[in-house]
Design a protein around this nucleic acid. Structure first.
Lengths: 341, 341
DNA sequence: CTGAAAGCGCTTACAG
DNA sequence: CTGAAAGCGCTTACAG
């Protein structure tokens, strides 16, 4: 618990001014070689470490970015956080995380408290007045809101839904079900709309159950699905967790995936590939998304704001075919025919 | 992008000194009612928000705690992060997260840069000189290191291993395998040691495979296990991911869990209950752990350091029996007998 | 109850 | 190349 050593301690030991110490540390080339050596020597013997808080106050910046997400314990976010932290850390930025559901007043303060230079926002459901009131560089990631006056990095959800529908239709499934996310969520909305549109394009019947992306919602959907007179044979879930919940509940109901029903998830979380059977899903490149968002914020901080911050093309989806989808089976076709007859 | 309003702006509008504004905001009862009203009025019309960076510098504290973890994208941590953030946020603390593998020099600086008041450390493999050199309140969570001079909150890993072994032995399994974590990891070490000790106490044969907690390590272990002349019928994995990887690979090898082999995991991550079959595992109350660690740090920051910070009893494990463990089956017993004969 | 003034620990024009 | 001085935006003894 040694006393904190300050720049004046270094200065007096080296016999120079604090200005010189400061320069020797941050711009060594502006200081004479002999002076520089004395200073460095003093830094070493005192064990001096700069106090970032003081420097940041003086320079009126925080050297920190804030990640705001609606649910920190959601496994979908973990890799995104890690990627942002890695990219930001590489250029000397600290990263803070906060739950975005902390109350309007606290949220408003975040933009003014001098603790963050920029924000990566993963929540599209914050009051636009609050978001647009922050006068800080901001990028929207994954979720977004048309009313936010900020660039965004989004996944191509409609194209992803199309990929899922086409895959099921190509396998011969004629009746499809979509288990959606929460109604007021952009991701859920765009996936649902994409599903409906693609199903219409393929002239395939389409039904939608409401859900909320969770394992529990998937299980609930499976029970509802099982109760249907005519069960759709192809199910597209709005998240992997939901799909896994659906499949797992099917197991309890004595229904086999993919023999009795094909299921597609969304995200390609780590478990997707290790589930039994391995989950067919839509891959979202989460690390890449986090990394890109971090780079956008960094570019904006460096003043290349408008240009670099412009909203680019959405991230392209990729269908990963694994073990939970199969061609529509004869049995299903038969029962369908029987039901129709 | 309105200009940032400072305390002087409020003061001049209200016709008082900055000292009075400061007091009106942080200790309203020390200010006359009329003055208070004027100040509040001025705060409202200017939209003033305090600059935390300046206040923190003046008060020589950061109002922030830092979480340091070896792998931010590990799903085991997500709930812990969320719990810490929630608990710390409730008392006005900001939380930063950083990967603990950012290099020695950066790590050293963390304790001196004035940006954090305390640290929650989830990594037991940092050089003790670095850790003990920080003169900041610190609590070790989950992982720990005997050489760190700091209180810790740990899970009772030996008792947990005993629970797993007893469960398998009670089911009649006479040959057990443990798939361990990385060699230099305390969690892995204590679980392995607990496993060995408990197996000896139950007079059951015990074998250990090295692993690293990942899905891939579990799959790899399953392949090794399948190649054994005498396959242990009870497998205790050092993490749920590892167990899931093991089970999933068994599926590919045509081995059925739990019919042919019983498997127990460790952690009780969200997926454990939704895997097929649902995973029997040891539950670690991650939210509770995060919450308690946050409370310890907060208590230390409030100066109740030594007392409240004392290392308490380890967190008790709980065995959650689900679908991946079954009594040792006759077939297994027979092949075992045959092998012995 | 309120204000003038010092100070938190730095950086940076401004001189020389 | 180096130093004296101002200032980042607050808070807090110290007076009154």
């Amino acid at each position: 618990m040694a006393e904190r050593v300050r720049i004046v301690d270094v200065a007096s030991l080296a016999g120079v001014s604090t200005a010189t110490v400061s320069r020797a540390l941050s711009a060594p080339e502006t200081v004479g070689p002999a002076t520089r050596k004395k200073v460095m020597e003093a830094v070493r013997t005192t064990g001096y470490r700069i106090n970032s808080a003081a420097r940041d106050l003086r320079q009126r910046r925080a050297r920190s970015i804030l990640i705001l997400a609606p649910n920190l314990s959601n496994t979908f976010f973990s890799r995104i956080f890690a990627a942002i932290q890695e990219e930001a850390g590489a250029v000397g930025l600290t990263v803070q995380i906060s739950d975005s559901r902390i109350g309007r007043d606290k949220l408003v303060s975040l933009g003014y408290d001098g603790r963050a230079d920029g924000i990566v926002l993963l929540d599209g459901n914050i009051d636009p007045e609050v978001v647009n009131g922050w006068n800080l560089p901001l990028v929207q990631l994954s979720e977004w809101n048309e009313s936010y006056d900020a660039p965004r990095l989004v996944f191509d959800n409609p194209a992803a839904a199309r990929l899922a529908v086409d895959h099921l239709a190509d396998l011969g499934h004629r009746a499809l079900l979509h288990v959606s996310g929460p109604a007021e969520n952009v991701l859920a909305e765009t996936r649902r709309a994409g599903f409906l549109e693609a199903a219409a394009a393929r002239a395939v019947s389409a039904e939608v159950f409401d859900g909320d992306f969770t394992l529990a919602a998937g299980a609930e959907a499976a029970r509802r699905w099982a109760g249907l007179a005519e069960r759709p044979t192809g199910v597209f879930c709005a998240s992997d967790e939901c799909a896994l919940g659906f499949i797992s509940e099917c197991g309890r109901l004595g229904v086999s995936v993919p023999r009795d029903v094909s299921v597609i998830g969304f995200d390609d979380i780590d478990f997707a590939d290790h589930f039994l059977p391995a989950l067919t899903t839509i891959r979202q490149p989460r690390e890449e998304m986090g990394r890109q968002a971090a780079r956008m914020i960094v570019a904006m901080l460096e003043g290349q704001g408008a240009a670099a911050g412009a909203t680019g093309a959405p991230i392209a989806p990729e269908l990963v075919v694994r073990g939970t989808t199969l061609p529509a089976c004869p049995a299903a076709a038969r029962s369908e025919a029987a039901a129709e007859g």
